[in-house]
């Protein structure tokens, strides 16, 4: 005899089942959020393989810390924070954040056409961000995406507040350069 269990739509029930260690519910939670969370991890990693490592660690943390979820915030945001923490942990463990040298850089004029910028797809922008060094990428992401202050970023990454500011500044300039290069290629495509 077979009875099919309906996909759990009630988030609270799903979370409780996950806390109880029900592997099927855990798989269901993974199915629900894996795409979104991997999307987040991609911005903190240099490629998809690395992002999947972060996602794997992140989901293990999610299931470990789920009993502490208080239902006050949305589960998605809570999971997103855990993924970011997993990403930070990964980079901290590999000591990739010790950025002591500033970006060597000649001031030049990078013309980035705002109209063309709007044609860029999210994946193009992601690839550009992934080209940043890990430290710059972390500071840029935490400041721009997560809205953290330099004081908070400095504390999280274990760097000086000034370093955080300069890293952000450098990251933005690099992004502009990369955007300009991308812009040229894209303009050609549009003109054709």
């Amino acid at each position: 005899m077979l009875s099919r269990t309906p996909i759990l739509t009630d988030q609270r029930k799903l979370i409780k089942a996950c806390i109880a260690g029900d592997r099927i519910s855990q798989a269901a939670l993974y199915d629900l959020y894996a795409r979104k969370m991997l999307g987040t991890c991609m911005w903190y990693a240099k490629n998809k393989e690395e992002a999947e490592e972060i996602l794997q660690d992140g989901f293990l943390r999610v299931f470990r810390y789920l009993p502490g979820f208080n239902f006050k915030s949305s589960l998605e945001n809570w999971m997103r924070k855990i993924m970011i923490n997993a990403a930070l942990h990964k980079y901290r463990s590999k000591a990739r954040l010790n950025i002591v040298q500033r970006f060597d850089w000649t001031q030049e004029y990078f013309g980035v056409d705002g109209t063309v910028l709007n044609h860029l797809e999210a994946r193009d922008l992601l690839k550009i961000v992934q080209k940043l060094s890990p430290g710059y990428r972390m500071v840029f992401n935490l400041y721009v995406f997560e809205g953290l202050k330099h004081r908070e970023i400095a504390k999280i990454l274990g760097i000086a507040e000034g370093t955080s500011k300069s890293n952000l500044s450098d990251a933005r300039l690099i992004l502009q350069k990369l955007l300009a290069n991308h812009n040229g290629r894209l303009k050609l495509k549009i003109d054709r």
């Binding site: 795409r35 999210a122 721009v144």
Partner: peptide
């Protein structure tokens, strides 16, 4: 620039 990146960040999804 920040807002363009941010909107992409928020909407981006990837198949594992």
């Amino acid at each position: 620039i920040d807002s363009i990146f941010k909107s992409s960040y928020e909407s981006f999804e990837e198949e594992p």
